[in-house]
């Protein structure tokens, strides 16, 4: 694992910790920095990070805190507090 991938993992932890502390702006800064590192180094964003960040406002999402997770037929909908929805399928 190279430095860039490791930085992304560290930033995920930092973003989560910042959100738990209620510091959403700082969490957004960490998410944006991680996205930038991923695109500069042509790395795939880790799935856990991809699924729990908002594509519209870059917030780190914690279900029950600033995100809502609902199951529709065949897919999961994660809604951010900003109003954006993200969907991904699940297998029964």
């Amino acid at each position: 694992m190279d430095v860039a991938a490791e930085r992304i993992d560290r930033l995920e932890e930092l973003a989560r910790a910042a959100t738990i502390d209620g510091d959403d702006e700082r969490a957004k800064y960490y998410v944006q920095l991680a996205r930038r590192i991923a695109e500069r180094n042509r790395l795939e964003f880790p799935r856990s990070f991809e699924r729990f960040t908002c594509d519209r406002c870059d917030a780190y999402l914690r279900p029950g805190d600033n995100a809502r997770v609902r199951l529709q037929n065949g897919h999961v909908v994660i809604s951010c507090d900003c109003g954006a929805h993200a969907r991904y399928p699940y297998d029964e």
């Binding site: 190279d2 430095v3 490791e6 930085r7 560290r10 930033l11 932890e13 930092l14 960490y30 920095l33």
Partner: peptide, 15 residues
């Protein structure tokens, strides 16, 4: 490539 003294200037400083 963990965070070692060599890689630190290239590594994540936040936190």
């Amino acid at each position: 490539m963990t965070l070692t003294p060599e890689t630190l200037p290239r590594h994540e400083l936040n936190g």
